[in-house]
Write a protein that binds this DNA or RNA. Sequence first.
RNA 1: CGGGACGUAGCGCAGCCCGGUAGCGCACCUGAAUGGGGUUCAGGGGGUCGCGGGUUCAAAUCCCGCCGUCCCGACCA
Length: 489
Amino acid sequence: MADDKKLTPRAQDFSAWYNEVVLKAELADYSPVRGCMVIRPDGYGIWERMQRALDDMFKATGHRNAYFPLFIPESFLKKEAQHVEGFAPETAVVTHGGGKKLEEPLIVRPTSETIIYAMFAKWVQSYRDLPLLINQWANVVRWEMRTRLFLRTLEFLWQEGHTAHATHDEAEEEARRMLGVYRDFMEGWMAMPVITGQKTDSERFAGALRTYSCEAMMQDNKALQAGTSHNLGQNFAKAFDLKFQTESGGTEFAWNTSWGVSTRMIGGLVMTHGDDNGLRVPPMLAPTEVVIVPIWRTDEERDRVFEAAHRIKATLAAGEQRGANRLRVHVDAREGIKPGAKYFEWELRGVPVRMELGPRDLDKAQAVVVRRDTREKRPVSLDALGRDVADLLERIQGDMLVAARDRRESNSFRGEITYDRFREVMNAEGAFVYAGWCGDGSCEAQVKEDTKATIRVLPDEEFRSAEAPTKCMHCGRGATSEALWAKAY
RNA sequence: CGGGACGUAGCGCAGCCCGGUAGCGCACCUGAAUGGGGUUCAGGGGGUCGCGGGUUCAAAUCCCGCCGUCCCGACCA
C-alpha cells in the first residue's frame, strides 16, 4: 500500500486526522449553518444503535420517555440563579414570531431542567407520585464560540434524564446509579473505558449540588467528558415550587437529578478506536457487522460467488447456526470496483469483520475472514461459519476494550509525582495523572494556567492509586482527596 | 472581540507578483480491457473565479469597500 494514500498519521496532527476520518467515513458533514453539523446515515446508524441500547437500559431502571418543548420562556431560565449564570451566555434567543416582536423572548433550550421541573410541579402532589423518572431524547442548542464535529456543535442530539425523589439519599443513589449505567454502556457497548467520579466546584453543572462524570482518554491523551449525572438537590424544586405532601402530612420540596449523554460519544468512539486506516466500530454498535466482498473473474465465477455470498448472508442474518444471534451482514456486490479498493473502503468505514469470498475459497469450502481491529486474516470453513464469525465478533468487542484500557493505563501516572515532572508531562505528550489535591480552587486554577490541565474528576475509590495521597501535588499542603488531572476537550 | 491565513468545478489546489480563450489532481458519466490489497487507457459533463464598486480597449489577476470561512487566543459538553 502506498503511504500517501493513508490518512494523516495521528501522531503528527490528531485533530486533522480526526476531521478527515469523520468526513471521509461519511459520519457527518459541515452544514451551511456555521457550527452546526449534518449527521449522515453512517453516523446516524451508530447513534441509533446507541439510542436503542441506552433506551433499553433506562427502561430497565424504571424510566419512561416523554417530550418537552424546544422553547423555554426566558423567565424560566432566570429562576435558578446559578443555572442562568451558567447558561445565559451560550443561549440562542427567539425574539420574533409571526412577524411580531414577542413580549417575552423564548430561549432555544440549552438543557431542559427549567421547563421539565415546571411541569413536574404540576404533576407531583404527594409522596405517592415519587419517584418520577423521566427521560427525553431531544436536540439542544448551545452557542459555542468554536465548534468541532460531534464534540462541540451549536446544536446536538442527546438524551436527558430528569427525576424527582422524596429524599436527598434517594436522589443521590439515582445520580450514581445512572452514572453506572453510562459506564456500563461506554465500556460494554462502545469498548471505551472510563474513569468515573465527582467533579470539583469549578466544573460542576450550573445549579447542581454535585456533578458526576465519565471521563475517557482519547488517543492524544486528552480527556473527553463523555457523560454526566447531577444531583440537583432542591435547587430547582425551590425555584419551580416542586413540592409534595409527605406521608406524615407535611410539605417538602422534591429532590431532583438530571443526567445526559450526547452525539459527542460518536466523537469519543472515533478518537478512542480510530487508526491510520480509518474508523473502527465495536461490533455491538456497528450498523454492519460483517461485509462480504465477492471476488470473481468470469461471469460464471461471478454467479457462483454471488450465490454463495447471499447464502452465507442469509445464514448469518438468520443466526441459524447460533440460535438468537442474528448478524448484520452486507454483500458488496458492486461491479467495476476491484476487491482491494473495497477492502480499503470498508476499513475506512470501520466494519468489524470483512469476509473475502472467491472461486478458490469456494473450491476449498472456506472464506477468508479479516478482523478490522487487528487486520488479522485467516481462512474459515463454511460449515461452522456462523459460530466462528459470531465468536470472532465477541472477541473483537472484548479485545477493543482491553486495547483501549491498556493504552490509557500506559499513559497514566499513579503515585508520587513532583509538580515539575507533572508540568513536563502535561506540556509534552499529556497523560492522566492521579495526584493529591488540597481542595483549594486556586491550586486548580494555577495548574490550569501552567499546563492547561484541569481536574477531570475526583475518582471513585476503585480508580484511585494504591497509595493514598498525602500532599497536594501543587502546593504541598495536606491533600484532602486524590484528583484525576488531564487536559480536556 | 484581539492576532494570522484563505475564498477559483462536489472536494483539494495552481494561475494573481508581471491584466489578454478558465486550468490541474481526485470524484462523477460513457466505452473497452482488467479483476485475491487503493486498475489502466480513451472520450466526456460540470465554474456569473465570495459580493459590490473603481482603474483599463480588456480584470480571477491591480485598487477600494463589504461578506464569509478556517487556525491561534479568550469561552465551553
